[in-house]
Simulated scan of single mutants.
Amino acid sequence: MTKSITAWQKAKQEGRKLAMITAYDHAMARLAEQAGLDALLIGDSLGMMMAGEKDTLPVSLEQMEYHTRIVARAVSRPLVMADLPFGAFEESPQQAFAASARLLKAGADIVKLEGGAVMAETVAFLSARAIPVCAHIGLTPQHVRQFGGFKRQGKTQEAADKLFDDALALQAAGARMLLMEAIPADLATRITQALDIPTIGIGAGNGTTAQVLVLHDVLGLNPDKAPSFAKPYLNGAELLTQALTAYATETRAGTFPA
Rank of each mutant, 00 (worst) to 15 (best):
M1W: 12
K3R: 15
I5L: 14
T6Q: 14
A7T: 14
A7Y: 13
Q9S: 07
K12V: 06
I21K: 02
H26A: 05
M28V: 02
M28D: 02
R30G: 11
L31E: 06
A32M: 05
Q34F: 11
A35M: 15
A35N: 12
L37V: 11
A39G: 12
I42S: 00
I42Y: 01
G43C: 02
G43N: 01
D44N: 01
S45E: 00
L46A: 01
L46T: 01
M48F: 05
M49N: 01
M49W: 00
M50T: 13
K54L: 07
L57E: 06
L57N: 11
S60N: 07
Q63F: 05
M64N: 01
E65A: 06
L79M: 14
L79N: 06
L79G: 04
L79A: 13
V80M: 15
V80F: 08
L84Q: 01
G87H: 11
P93G: 10
Q94K: 12
Q94D: 15
F97N: 00
L103I: 02
L104R: 13
G107R: 05
A108T: 00
A108Q: 03
V111P: 06
L113T: 08
G116Y: 11
V118P: 00
M119K: 10
E121T: 08
T122Y: 11
L126E: 00
A128W: 08
I131L: 10
P132W: 14
V133T: 06
C134K: 02
A135T: 03
L139Q: 09
L139T: 10
V144K: 02
F147T: 13
G148L: 04
G154Y: 14
K155D: 09
E158M: 08
A159F: 07
A160Y: 10
K162S: 02
K162P: 00
D165I: 09
A169R: 04
A173D: 01
M177C: 14
M177V: 11
L179R: 04
M180Y: 05
E181L: 03
I183R: 11
R190T: 11
R190K: 15
T192G: 08
Q193Y: 10
Q193A: 12
A194I: 12
A194E: 10
P198H: 10
G201T: 09
G205L: 08
N206I: 07
N206C: 09
G207N: 13
T208L: 15
T208F: 08
T209K: 02
T209R: 09
Q211P: 06
Q211D: 07
V212K: 04
V214I: 14
H216T: 01
D217T: 04
V218A: 10
G220I: 04
L221K: 02
N222G: 00
A226H: 10
A230R: 04
P232S: 09
N235H: 10
A237F: 13
A237Y: 15
T245K: 14
T245C: 12
A248R: 15
T249C: 13
G254K: 12
G254Y: 14
P257D: 12
P257E: 13
P257Y: 15
A258G: 07
